[in-house]
């Protein structure tokens, strides 16, 4: 399994990268961690004539708190999330996800930006970022712009970035008081994509859920929020009956494809079960 030939560029700055991207419009792929792209190239499922490697650009690997949000540099390795005290102590949903993405060696190389920009509903970060209501920062020839995560995932493997834009940062709003989050993923074994995964971020006022966002992994052609489930949860006391209704709504609104992981019916039901579990965990964290 040998990749096809390509031209390789390793710009040292973002502006060089943007220039190269414009020069090779249509031909170039950005290379971040490469943990999805390089296997695809080895199978020659992807044969980009030009690769622009972002790994030599300084200053894209960071996890820090800025003005009410967590800022994650696009080239931050997944393992850095596991090692970040900030993430572990205050961003539980993200911390949950960071432990179950691929496997530990892959997480040393894979990047948060790449995981999101790939716009693969099977990846874990899209659902997580949807649940957080994150923002994606893109740099193009005309400067930077912020894209709400709700507008970022356009289709399978298709994001809202223009051809000459580069994802540079992800911003996650710092959860307020009485907030909690959780990611519950069911995988067949370590390293597998999810049969289903549910990301929940919510705020509680006593027993009542005052806000909630739910993202789903690998049960739809495009990364999705379970909006009907959210609606059934917000403003409600979180009882077992309520959870059942919320889970059932998530199961109904997702759109999984049958494959070796299971039938669509099975994946829907697992989504129902995991939605309940993720909410329970998030509520526990919000109220403890």
């Amino acid at each position: 399994m040998i990749p096809g030939a390509f031209d390789y560029h390793a710009p040292g700055t973002l502006s060089e990268a943007v220039t190269l991207l414009r020069q090779h419009a249509g031909d170039a792929k950005l290379l971040a961690g490469g943990q999805s792209l390089i296997p695809a190239m080895r199978f020659r499922l992807a044969m980009p004539p030009v690769l622009i490697d972002l790994n030599q650009i300084e200053g894209l690997e960071y996890v820090r708190e800025d003005n009410g949000h967590l800022a994650i540099g696009a080239m931050t390795r997944e393992s850095a999330l596991e090692e970040s005290g900030l993430v572990q102590s205050r961003f539980h949903l993200l911390a949950d996800a960071a432990r179950v993405i691929a496997d530990p060696v892959v997480r040393n190389r894979a990047t948060v930006g790449g995981n999101i920009a790939h716009a693969d509903p099977a990846n874990d970060h899209p659902a997580v970022m949807l649940a957080y209501g994150a923002e994606v920062i893109a740099l193009g020839p005309n400067g930077t712009r912020a894209i709400a995560i709700d507008n970022f995932f356009v289709d399978l493997f298709e994001n809202a970035l223009a051809e000459d834009e580069i994802l540079t940062e992800i911003r996650i709003p710092t959860p307020g008081a009485n907030s909690g989050g959780a990611y519950v993923k069911m995988e067949r074994k370590v390293g597998d994509y999810a049969i289903s995964g549910v990301a929940v971020q919510l705020t509680m006022n006593g027993d009542t859920c005052t806000s909630a966002r739910i993202g789903l992994t690998n049960v739809s052609p495009t990364p999705m929020r379970a909006k009907q489930a959210e609606q059934l949860l917000v403003g409600q006391v979180v009882t077992d009956e309520r959870l059942e209704a919320v889970g059932a709504a998530a199961a109904a609104e997702c759109d999984p494809s049958p494959d070796l992981r299971g039938s669509a019916e099975y994946k829907r039901d697992v989504t129902r079960v995991l939605t309940k579990r993720a909410i329970r965990q998030a509520v526990e964290r919000a109220t403890s």
Binding site: Y8, A10, L31, G34, Q35, I38, P39, R42, D53, N55, R77, S79, P104, V105, V106, N108, R109
Partner: peptide, 20 residues
Amino acid sequence: TISLNGRTVKSCTVFAVQAN
């Protein structure tokens, strides 16, 4: 699996040129 710049990576999923 090897170590590249202090982190283990799967060397089948990195290009040699990236190790420059």
